[in-house]
Design a protein around this nucleic acid. Structure first.
Length: 305
RNA sequence: GGCCCGGUAGCUCAGUUGGUAGAGCAGAGGACUGAAAAUCCUCGUGUCCCCGGUUCGAUUCCGGGCUGGGCCA
C-alpha cells in the first residue's frame, strides 16, 4: 500500500545487548543510530549509563547522545522534536534510521502523541510546587475538583507529579481535564508518516542477571565513583532525573554517608534489577505488538526482513 | 570466667503496660501527557532463638540453655 519510509526501533531491557546488536546492524546496513535512552543525553554520564564507548560511537553516526549538560533538564517534548529532526536529517541523506534504547516513555514518541502543546508558565509551575509542599496535595486536588465538576477521570490523585501537571494544564489552558484528554488522544504521533517497525531483544533472566552483575562490577572498576564526583562538582544534583539515575544515586548516597561503601555494588545491582522489572511491565502494556527475539540468537535478522 | 546489651518477615529494625505483631528495604503485580533509570498504587502468618515455670492465656514476666556483640578479667 503506502510507500511510507521505514523507521526501525530496537529496544530491550537494560543490559540485554542492544548496543552491540544495533552497531552490527547499523554498520551492515549503512544506517545511523538515534538514541532513545533518557540518560545518554547527558555529557559526562558515561560509565554509569553504559554509554557506548568512543570507539563504538565512531563506528556508526549517533544522534541524541551527549546533547546536554547533566545539570540541564530534558523532557519528552524536546525529545520528540529533536528525534524528529534527526530522523529527517538522516532520511535526507538517504540512509536507514535505527532508533535504539530502553526508555519506554521516550520510546512511545514513535507510536503515540506525547505532548499536548500547552505552554505552562514556569512561574505557575513553581507556584504549584510550592503549594504542594506547604499545603499538601489535597489543596491541589481540591482545586482540580473545583475546575472539573465533571470529574477527574483516571488521574492518580495520590501522585504529586501527576496532580501538579494536571492542574497546571487546567490553569494554563482554562479548560477541563476531560476536554484536554480527548483532544490529546486525537492527536497523531510525531512519526505517523513513517512505517515504524519495532523489535525487542529479550534476554533470559539468569543470563541477564549475570550480565548485570558483570556490568556493575566493571562500572566500578572503570571509575564510576570518580565520574560521579566530577559530575557532582559540576552540578549533577540540580537535575533530579540525572541525579536519580541508577549507579549515580547510589554513589551520591555513599558520598553523603547514607550508604556504606561496601554495600554500593549490591545496591546498584538491586536497583538495576528493579529497573528491568519496570521496563518489562512497560514493554508489555505500553508498546504496540512487536517482534521479540532472543538476545542469544545473534544469527537472526533484527527486523525479520 | 564475670557483667552488660541483643536474638521478631529474605535483610535492617520497631512493638506488644501479658490477649499470637508492623515499618523501611528487598520481592510480586499494576498505573503512566511535558523529571520516566522519574513518580505513584496494591500485596505482610512470621516456630516473635530453644526448654521449662507462673498465668485462663507468654513473643511479652521469671529461671535455665544456646547464640551474636561490647566491657572487665
Amino acid at each position: 500500500m503506502s510507500a511510507r519510509p521505514v523507521l526501525r526501533v530496537l529496544t530491550g531491557a537494560t543490559a540485554s545487548g542492544k548496543t552491540a546488536r544495533a552497531l552490527d546492524w547499523a554498520e551492515w546496513h549503512g544506517a545511523e543510530i538515534v538514541s532513545c535512552d533518557s540518560l545518554l543525553f547527558y555529557r559526562g554520564m558515561d560509565i554509569g549509563t553504559a554509554k557506548p564507548t568512543r570507539a563504538e560511537l565512531a563506528r556508526v553516526p549517533h544522534h541524541l547522545v551527549d546533547i546536554v549538560e547533566p545539570c540541564e533538564r530534558y523532557d519528552v517534548q524536546r525529545y520528540v522534536a529533536e528525534a524528529r529532526a534527526a530522523v529527517d536529517e538522516i532520511a535526507a541523506r538517504g540512509r536507514p534510521v535505527l532508533v535504539v534504547g530502553g526508555s519506554g516513555f521516550y520510546l512511545r514518541s514513535f507510536f503515540a502523541p506525547m505532548s499536548d502543546g500547552i505552554e505552562v508558565d514556569p512561574t505557575l509551575r513553581a507556584q504549584l510546587e510550592a503549594r504542594l509542599k506547604d499545603d499538601g496535595i489535597e489543596s491541589l486536588v481540591a482545586e482540580l475538583h473545583a475546575l472539573n465538576p465533571a470529574g477527574l477521570g483516571a488521574l492518580d490523585l495520590q501522585n504529586p507529579r501527576r496532580v501538579v501537571r494536571a492542574l497546571e494544564r487546567c490553569r494554563a489552558s482554562g479548560r477541563a481535564l476531560a476536554e484536554l484528554a480527548a483532544e490529546f488522544a486525537a492527536k497523531p504521533s510525531a512519526f505517523t508518516d513513517f512505517d515504524v517497525r519495532l523489535a525487542r531483544l529479550e534476554c533470559e533472566p539468569a543470563e541477564l542477571e549475570r550480565r548485570i552483575a558483570a556490568r556493575v562490577q566493571a562500572m566500578l572498576a572503570a571509575g564510576l565513583v570518580d565520574e560521579v564526583r566530577r559530575l557532582d562538582a559540576a552540578g549533577l544534583r540540580e537535575n533530579p532525573s540525572a541525579a536519580r539515575a541508577i549507579g549515580y544515586r547510589e554513589v551520591l548516597d555513599v558520598l553523603d554517608g547514607k550508604l556504606r561503601a561496601d554495600e554500593l555494588e549490591a545496591a546498584i545491582v538491586r536497583n538495576t534489577r528493579a529497573l528491568v522489572k519496570k521496563q518489562r511491565t512497560w514493554f508489555r502494556s505500553q508498546l504496540p505488538p512487536h517482534r521479540v527475539l532472543a538476545a542469544s540468537d545473534t544469527a537472526a535478522e533484527l527486523f525479520g526482513e
